[in-house]
């Protein structure tokens, strides 16, 4: 069969809607991951041993079980508990929890890289523990870990394609529809591959620029 991209033109609307849904899911999941990751990182850098242990177990489980299995666990499991939530919410929650495991490692190393003198100074000023964490530790840790967080975001975008398996018509899901409408799966999935690659590539470029901009006052040993 001839390779012909023009067959896709009438279906661009469907793909655009899918892309918007992917963007929404990723944005929400990124926020969810950062919150979850910050909480887990807080636990894993805390002075309490049980908390550190709990954080380790969390990261260990969610990094070593395939995302699709985690997602099915929530998607099929929650209705059994009487919680009827839609595929989009389930997907975002699953992405946030799994992303949180990766984000926590990033934020954790950001926290550990903070000069202890900074925290000691804050404590000497009599600031409350919570204030120290929210106003001093987190801003520094997040700022220095923009680049690795970007890698997590890229991963999140790629992983969000798996949401199509729980009936969510995001970018991959809507491409499946277009492929079965046009009978041209090769063109559809080829374009999809390129779109994802360009998308993630531009996200990592943008993140790199943001990282340099936010950390411009820090002299980097390796740029």
């Amino acid at each position: 069969m001839q390779f012909d991209l023009t067959v896709l033109l009438p279906h661009l609307g469907v793909l655009r809607d899918g892309a918007i849904l992917t963007a929404q899911a990723c944005a929400l999941a990124l926020a969810g991951s950062v919150v979850t990751g910050a909480l887990v990182a807080m636990a894993s850098t805390s002075a309490s041993k049980p908390l550190r242990r709990a954080a380790d177990i969390y990261v260990d489980i969610f990094r070593n079980v395939p995302f699709i299995v985690q997602m099915f666990f929530f998607y099929f499991g929650l209705p059994v508990l009487g919680l009827y939530i839609d595929a989009f919410t389930t997907g975002v929650v699953a992405l946030s929890i799994a992303g949180g495991a990766f984000t926590s490692n990033v934020i954790r190393s950001g926290i550990l890289a903070i000069d202890p003198g900074v925290i000691e100074a804050a404590q000497v000023f009599g600031l409350h523990k919570r204030t120290v964490f929210l106003k001093i530790v987190m801003p520094i840790a997040l700022r220095t870990s923009i680049r690795p967080l970007g890698a997590v975001l890229v991963n999140l975008i790629l992983t969000s394609s798996i949401l199509s398996t729980i009936t969510l018509n995001e970018l991959t899901g809507s491409a499946k529809i277009v492929a079965s409408d046009t009978f041209r799966p090769f063109e559809v999935y080829f374009v999809l591959l390129v779109v994802y690659a360009v998308l993630t590539w531009s996200v990592s470029l943008a993140i790199g620029a943001l990282h340099r901009r936010l950390n411009r006052d820090i002299v980097e040993v390796v740029s």
């Binding site: 069969m1 390779f3 890229v154 790629l158 992983t159 394609s161 798996i162 199509s164 398996t165 991959t172 491409a175 499946k176 492929a179 009978f183 041209r184 799966p185 090769f186 063109e187 559809v188 999935y189 080829f190 999809l192 591959l193 390129v194 994802y196 690659a197 993630t200 590539w201």
Partner: peptide, 23 residues
């Protein structure tokens, strides 16, 4: 290598499983 690294495995699977036989 860059394209394979920066695109979802699911889409790559679909391309090979659904797309390649047709093309």
């Amino acid at each position: 290598a860059e394209t394979l690294k920066n695109s979802p495995v699911l889409v790559q699977l679909f391309l090979v499983f659904f797309g390649l036989p047709v093309l």
